[in-house]
């Protein structure tokens, strides 16, 4: 599966559009990470636990989008966009979407 956040891929021709494909996941932080984040809030800097959590979550959302594209018969996803939203104080939704296409060289 070829993924790109551009609208076209040079060298390839889109032979068929299968429509919008998407994947999402909602993740909550856990207490241990939150405790470390509390400490970090005193001195500032990166919240590594959160970075890893969101990286994992984004990967899962992307995998779901790829599965969606597979099931629709696409071999590439173009114009991929990421979006994150905080739904409640402790949880975030990771959403990935794009256009599933069939491409050929």
């Amino acid at each position: 599966m070829i993924l790109s956040n551009t609208e076209m891929i040079a060298g390839y021709k889109v032979t068929n559009h299968v429509g919008l494909v998407q994947g999402n996941t909602v993740r909550a932080k856990h207490v241990g990470r939150d405790f470390m984040a509390g400490l970090k809030n005193i001195v500032g800097g990166e919240l590594k636990g959160y970075t890893e959590l969101l990286e994992d979550a984004r990967k899962e959302a992307t995998d779901r989008m790829i599965a969606d594209a597979h099931s629709k018969g696409a071999n590439a996803i173009i114009n991929v966009r990421f979006s994150t939203s905080a739904i409640t104080a402790g949880a975030s939704e990771l959403y990935v979407y794009g256009t599933g296409v069939v491409i050929a060289q």
Binding site: L3, I9, N41, G44, G45, E46, T51
Partner: peptide, 26 residues
């Protein structure tokens, strides 16, 4: 830019992220 130059190999979606704390002092 939204258009890619032509290449032989397929393109690759890459990401980089960081979560930063809004600290007490700030």
């Amino acid at each position: 830019l939204r258009t890619l130059p032509a290449t032989e190999k397929p393109p690759l979606l890459v990401t980089g992220s960081v979560v930063i704390a809004f600290d007490y002092f700030r």
